[in-house]
Design a protein around this nucleic acid. Structure first.
Lengths: 250, 250
DNA sequence: CGTAGGCTTGAAAAGCGTCAATAGGAGTGG
DNA sequence: CCACTCCTATTGACGCTTTTCAAGCCTACG
């Protein structure tokens, strides 16, 4: 059972509520089809009727929405352990697409099984509910980021968020992180154009805010400075797991 | 029981899942402190430890976040029946503020009671979960609206959303709706400045897209045109309640 | 060694913000 | 009922951030 592919899901949900052995066992025993998918593969398309919930087991994916003029907006980035598609699968018709950024391993779980485990194992249901609430908090921060910060702050904020989430997921070192996105994808995530992302990143680099390690990784020497420029505060990530978990126990 | 102040909450949750008589009764019997609060009153402040969940019984409120430079971003607008603060109260520390737009009637329910009813009455718990998911979908649409549309489309989209939600809540006529917001608040909701909102609204008015009825109401003569300019599609509101409700019954 | 996708750069235009001043309207105290 | 005051709406002039369009370059990969 410790070799179940759904280990990352247990780890992520454990951040949200106290799960006992039976809870964990129930998650690990969920029927799950594991697939390797290539880069830029669509896991869900807007308007699809989703019947499966998708869990990231390795790699990265983005949720995005198409806009009338043909452009797109990325609304979230997912990494190992994230339950990507609870929203679409429970609400019926997908309001957004999900696409991998790199070749990734994903687990597909039938929607009904999710509903069932949420009922049978209340703590698991709570953890999933809290996970969706934390996800909503993250989206709200994105609204503020895109609506009220300039290009430099937006990118700095996105980098800070990435750095912290990667560290929490055990995927990043102390002073650097993988950034599996092209500049065009960064533009779609920040509400900018790829040209302006390029210029802004170069300015940030020349200021010593960040260093680029190859094409798909970023390093920072002064976290405080980066966080200040990005107006970054971890509160919205709701990482202080002990609080809600305790509250939900009674 | 039909005179309980929480009737609007029942109505809103009924859109998300099939609730039987006992479910409704349980909601209506929730311990609830009803308060009238004045305009611009803060129901919750960012970083507060929220212990109460707040339901709008009349009036309007907004959720907003403060940004480093002192500006603010509105991330959602709430009307009658909306459960405003499930997020903050369940996650512990508030990641955003909630403030009334006009003098309003609100119901305050202890957080533990919400947790309890979600457990005791599974259908109610599901309805609340789905409500938070629909709310998250709305926030994603706002990200796209602010990130990828110009000022005119953003405002048109906001107006469309308002018109539809007001109609669903039984608060709007066919071709007009109340808009209880100043231009500065509209600016905070769309990521613009009040000056630019003013100019854009006047353009929209001169184009015949909208008419203003006094200071706090808007009328439209050509819905299709308005929806086209706003790139508006109701899908993201997940109003087709029959689907998920049925699915969640088994 | 060729190709395609992504990165970089320049020049010019557009959209939106800033600053500042004026006008309009609703509520309040006299 | 009037004068006063504050908040909101309106408008102009100007400047800056960001976009647009277009071209060239780099580099991983076949």
């Amino acid at each position: 059972m410790s070799t179940s592919p759904l280990e990352p899901m247990v780890r992520t949900l454990s951040y949200r509520a106290v799960l006992d052995g039976d809870d964990r066992e129930a998650i690990l025993s969920l029927p799950c089809t594991v697939k390797m998918v290539e880069r830029l593969h669509y896991l869900v398309r807007e308007r699809d009727r989703a019947t499966q919930t998708c869990v990231m087991l390795s790699g990265y994916s983005v949720r995005s929405k198409l806009v009338g003029d043909g452009s797109r907006q990325i609304v979230a980035i997912h990494m190992k352990g994230d339950t990507v598609d609870l929203h679409n699968s429970l609400l019926g018709i997908a309001d957004h697409s999900v696409q991998t950024l790199v070749s990734s391993k994903v687990g597909m779980i039938p929607r009904d099984e999710i509903v069932r485990i949420a009922e049978k194992r209340p703590q698991v249901g709570r953890a999933m509910w809290l996970e969706t609430l934390a996800d909503a908090s993250l989206t709200r921060e994105w609204v503020a980021n895109i609506g009220r910060r300039d290009a430099r702050s937006r990118l700095a904020h996105l980098f800070c968020e990435f750095a912290v989430r990667m560290k929490v997921a055990g995927l990043a070192d102390e002073n650097q992180f993988e950034l599996p996105m092209t500049q065009e994808q960064l533009a779609d995530a920040t509400g900018l154009t790829s040209v302006h992302v390029n210029r802004t990143i170069r300015v940030m680099e020349s200021e010593g805010l960040i260093r680029r390690l190859g094409r798909r990784a970023v390093a920072y020497d002064d976290w405080r400075k980066l966080a200040e420029v990005g107006d970054f505060d971890t509160n919205y990530l709701h990482l202080n797991t002990s609080e809600p978990a305790l509250a939900w126990k009674g």
